[in-house]
């Protein structure tokens, strides 16, 4: 006997929340992608827990798919970040918008 499913769910929820905080509050593209990874991970945990709760392998299969999607997303995302970094010299998401970058004077200065 392990813990109740609600605890797994709560863990997944808290992890998701942490990922969300990361994506929302960090001014750094890489950290945003990191936050996405955390959120995907939380989803995977919840699926695996649900699979155990319902005694079905389906949850694990979906966790595997999540893994694959995460891998694809990270590779493309990071390639984009690199591209952007090469073009603008920064990974601050606000500077990518172009017109209201407040970072550049600081960076140059």
């Amino acid at each position: 006997m392990i813990v109740p499913y609600t605890h797994v769910m709560l863990l997944g929820g808290v992890l998701f929340l942490l990922g969300m905080i990361c994506t929302l509050t960090r001014r750094n593209l890489i950290m945003i992608i990191l936050g996405l990874e955390i959120m995907l991970n939380a989803a995977a945990i919840t699926f695996v827990g649900a699979g155990l709760h319902l005694q079905q392998i389906e949850g694990q299969a979906i966790a595997l798919f999540i893994l694959a999607v995460a891998a694809a997303e990270v590779s493309v995302g990071l390639a984009l970040v690199v591209c952007i970094y090469r073009q603008t010299g920064t990974v601050d998401p606000q500077c990518i918008e172009g017109n209201k970058c407040q970072l550049k004077p600081d960076q140059t200065g």
Binding site: M1, I2, V3, P4, Y5, V8, M9, G49, L52, H53
Partner: peptide, 10 residues
């Protein structure tokens, strides 16, 4: 959902 989950392995 409050019941502890039975252990099982795939």
């Amino acid at each position: 959902a409050r019941q502890p989950m039975p252990a099982a392995t795939a």
